[in-house]
Design a binder for these strands. Sequence first.
DNA 1: GGAACCTTACCACGGCTTTGTGAAGGTTTG
DNA 2: CAAACCTTCACAAAGCCGTGGTAAGGTTCC
Lengths: 127, 127
Amino acid sequence: MDALTINEAAETSGWSPRMLRYIEELGLVEPPRSSGGYRLYGPGELQRLRTLRQLLDRFGLGLGDVGFARRMQTESDLRTTVEGWLRSEAARPEHVPADDWLAWEQDKHERLLAEATRRDTTLRETR
Amino acid sequence: MDALTINEAAETSGWSPRMLRYIEELGLVEPPRSSGGYRLYGPGELQRLRTLRQLLDRFGLGLGDVGFARRMQTESDLRTTVEGWLRSEAARPEHVPADDWLAWEQDKHERLLAEATRRDTTLRETR
DNA sequence: GGAACCTTACCACGGCTTTGTGAAGGTTTG
DNA sequence: CAAACCTTCACAAAGCCGTGGTAAGGTTCC
């Protein structure tokens, strides 16, 4: 039993118990549960909680921002569409009819997705 | 003069003048200015405004979300740190000492930044 | 020059997010 | 088995976000 229950985890991580539950609700840190339903925070979860706090402080983010970043990683159509929109900031295509643009981006996304799926395998970043 | 002033742009884009200023404040659509300081919305800006609305509606986002996505594209240290944190969600490195992880990510960032700076001669002074 | 437009800078409000607290009840463990 | 912990749920306060309005003043253009 080297796992901490929620109040212990709260003390060593700097978050309140309430916030630990909220963070779980956002899908940011989801500890496993005991057979009776208790949250069990292991070293990995505790570390993620501490670095999460540093991340937020250092860049002035909110939990919602990290949640959104997570959506961007998860929902590839979201990511490609948002990135497409941002890219149009610098070089915008005058020749694409206004109401077609989003549809066009989506088509592009589907092409990309089909391609990615076909070649499958991990798209993990190299580092 | 094929550029619209803010009220005209508001009418054809569906945003209120107030929101157009707000959107500019978030760095999402920044029209050029006339010599007297009037915002001038060209076809490109108008298109971006319309697609922005579609983007928000389709994925249920807020303007703040898109602003954050933009920061992620702009600030490479933000991006790498957030992505690093998210990556630790699935496979967390038990072997990395807790307090070293963020520092490690930051070091990585500084290496990247140094590289970028070295090859970009026109950056303003850092302080 | 004057009408009609634009600028920035505030204050304000309704709604959603964040966070706390308490109630009612189940789990762990000495 | 009892003390101390945990669970979920709900209510509530504080704060932020999106949005409107208005005031004081500058720009455009007929």
